[in-house]
Design a protein around this nucleic acid. Structure first.
Lengths: 246, 246
DNA sequence: ACAAAAGTGTTTAATATACACCCATGT
DNA sequence: ACATGGGTGTATATTAAACACTTTTGT
């Protein structure tokens, strides 16, 4: 028993990943379109996830799922909650799908929620590196998802919001070189607030971990913006920073 | 298989509870002294916890553990993280203990961490309602615990700290009627900061959800302090409150 | 020349900080 | 009478908020 337990997938614990992306069009989430045996309606989406293996840590499991999906290793990854409602698998088509892929489809599964942040340059929405079934969906357009995945998504976004207030994780959603406008848009979107441009820029320019490059935007039909990067070293030094923009 | 899975304890998922209490002496944690078969050293402590049942939600499991321990139902309870290191059970005496109580002592166990907050009037440190083996230990005096329980404890306190900054959960650690000094002490302790008394009181008195009772401290050898209570109604109304005292 | 977004300062209001003495009670 | 913690106000510095025009580029 103990030997067999240590091999392969654990039937009772999974990870599910809310993968966020951000670009001009706003906040996006990476969803999996699943093959549903007899799917009468339109598409059927869920969050990427899998049962954990008995020899891997939770973070490793989430990493594995994301690596398979995006071909990117070590994405920014943050565990945010566990979901264990005994009825979280209750819809008939969810059950059917489980029966089609799981060894023990009726097992009670507790899932650990992670959110991942991807930089725009790393998410080629239809690049070959991405799993064919993965699809970016604007946050506002996310449909009803399988299982309790809408709940997990909401909870993940709430956690990200919270985290962005006190740690510089937002930069994981921006290109390595970004404009202050992009940073402002990101905070406005995730936090759901409007920010005064001049006040924002003044505040932000006092932060030593934002370093101006000697490089500007190119090919835009307006005054090209200064590019900045996030310096993690300067951040660690300075410390005390708050990320209460707005 | 699916039937047997639905009965009794799930071998792979547990909950562990960090139970906080607060009084004049500071922050305290409720620990379980465990019977260790051959415990050569002194006492051996762990956090209260148990495997979950297959028919209960995670919160229910945590509630059950706490009810058994304290005889109090519906303590303030907050899930804060999942711990799944495959080696979280690694010490020989931890393994021995598992073998003495678990049906499947070698199963991989992922545990969900909860913190609970108890009001001083509810924790009679040695009241009959409390499990004999439960013991309040000052946070600073917490010894090395079983499994990864020190990690869980630190992580729980960090989450509480975070939570107390944005939600009025601290009141769960205070008596129903409390003085402003007690509130200040609580925030100073948990946040690890010193707060100026006059500034603190000014700020706090502007908060409508703190209502002064027409009652004062009794039997103290100094000017008796005004008693206050927390009004959840006023809180819900006002909203916008920050709990960034300090 | 026009459209589109970048960039820039000042004034005013609100909030945070620093700080010292008298008061009510129990012993 | 003394020890103990409760209670109070003001002045100054810092931070937040509101607000409009000029600049640079592509078409």
């Amino acid at each position: 028993m103990s030997e067999s337990q240590n091999l392969g997938l654990n039937p009772n614990v999974s990870v599910d990943c809310v993968v966020f992306g951000f670009d001009k069009a706003g906040l996006k989430v990476l969803l999996i379109e699943r093959d549903n045996p007899d799917n009468t309606e339109g598409k059927n989406y869920q969050l990427p996830g899998d049962l954990i293996r008995n020899d891997e840590d939770l973070d490793e499991a989430a990493n594995r799922v994301l690596k398979e999906l995006t071909n990117i290793d070590n994405l920014f990854l943050q565990q945010f909650a566990a979901f264990g409602n005994p009825l979280r698998v209750k819809r008939e088509n969810d059950l059917e799908w489980l029966r089609s892929i799981r060894k023990d489809p009726d097992a009670r599964v507790v899932t650990i929620g992670y959110y991942a942040l991807i930089k725009p340059e790393d998410f080629a929405p239809s690049a070959s590196s991405f799993a064919r079934k993965a699809e970016w969906v604007r946050y506002e357009d996310v449909p009803e998802l399988a299982f309790d995945h809408n709940l997990i998504l909401e909870s993940g976004l709430a956690s990200l919001k919270q985290k962005m207030r006190s740690e510089p994780v937002g930069f994981e959603l921006l290109p390595a070189k970004f404009t202050l406008r992009q940073l402002q848009n990101l905070y406005e979107t995730v936090m759901g607030v409007e920010i005064d441009k001049r006040n924002f820029r003044r505040k932000v320019q006092g932060m030593k971990f934002l370093v101006a490059l000697d490089e500007k935007q190119k090919g835009v039909a307006h005054k090209p913006a200064q590019l900045y990067r996030f310096s993690n070293n300067n951040y660690k030094d300075s410390f005390s920073a708050t990320f209460d923009f707005a």
